[in-house]
């Protein structure tokens, strides 16, 4: 089986588009269209792809931009010229607090909730959600992007509800009944411990992991 000419990778900071520089424009175009048509609706309108521009021809870059814009998507040129650092290097980096927007800050809406979300309330957003308060048990937050709670999270949170596996859940005290990210579900332990530091839940190696962060 030959190597894919075009690869779409869901990275930590959004989607990355990898293009084989030896392929012709027609081949690339066909391949991107095929990929996008395989999962129509998977990429919400306005999603931007980071394009690895190691050794791509300028006309090819422009062509890719046009194809994506026909699908209502966008493209961003990667700033770094060198190949992306290996995953091993990445994990050694100190945990940083960044609200991850999937690389499309201006295209995505951010819902800011400036009160405590109480039991029975449901907040749904296509983009990311920032809660300036607690999420109480019985409340639900469903976000297309990431969820950030500046308080205690005790309810049910679903980040990346439309399939964005790079979405994360961050809370000052993360003790939800359930965390869902994309299509994965993690249930809280039956006996909940109070955490004293902010935590982040994300998908790593096919499962939801929770790690302490500084903020």
């Amino acid at each position: 089986m030959s190597r894919d000419l075009v690869t779409i990778k869901g990275g930590k900071d959004g989607f990355r588009l990898l293009v084989d520089s030896s392929a012709s424009m027609e081949e690339i175009e066909a391949e991107i269209k095929k990929k996008l048509n395989e999962n129509p609706g998977f990429f919400p309108e306005g999603t931007k792809f980071e394009l690895e521009v190691a050794d791509l021809d300028r006309s090819v870059k422009k062509g890719i931009g046009q194809i994506l814009s026909q699908h209502g998507l966008g493209v961003e040129m990667s700033a770094k010229k060198e190949p992306p650092p290996a995953p091993a290097e990445k994990s050694q980096m100190p945990p940083q607090y960044v609200i991850q927007h999937g690389g499309n800050v201006e295209a995505q809406e951010m819902t800011v909730v400036e009160h405590t979300v109480r039991g029975g309330e449901e907040i749904t957003s296509q983009g990311s959600v920032l809660i300036m308060g607690n999420i109480n048990p019985g409340a639900q937050i469903i976000a297309g992007g990431s969820i950030d709670v500046r308080g205690t999270c005790r309810g049910m949170v679903h980040a990346g509800a439309w399939g964005d596996t790079s979405a994360v859940v961050i809370a000052d005290r993360l003790m939800p009944t359930q965390i869902r990210i994309a299509n994965m579900i993690a249930r809280s332990p039956d006996i909940m411990e109070k955490s004293d530091f902010a935590e982040r839940a994300s998908i790593k190696d096919g499962q939801i992991i929770i790690e302490p962060i500084e903020r």
Partner: peptide, 12 residues
């Protein structure tokens, strides 16, 4: 407590 929370939401 759960129901009180809901009621506070409703009052709001």
């Amino acid at each position: 407590v759960r129901d009180a929370d809901k009621i506070i939401g409703e009052l709001g």
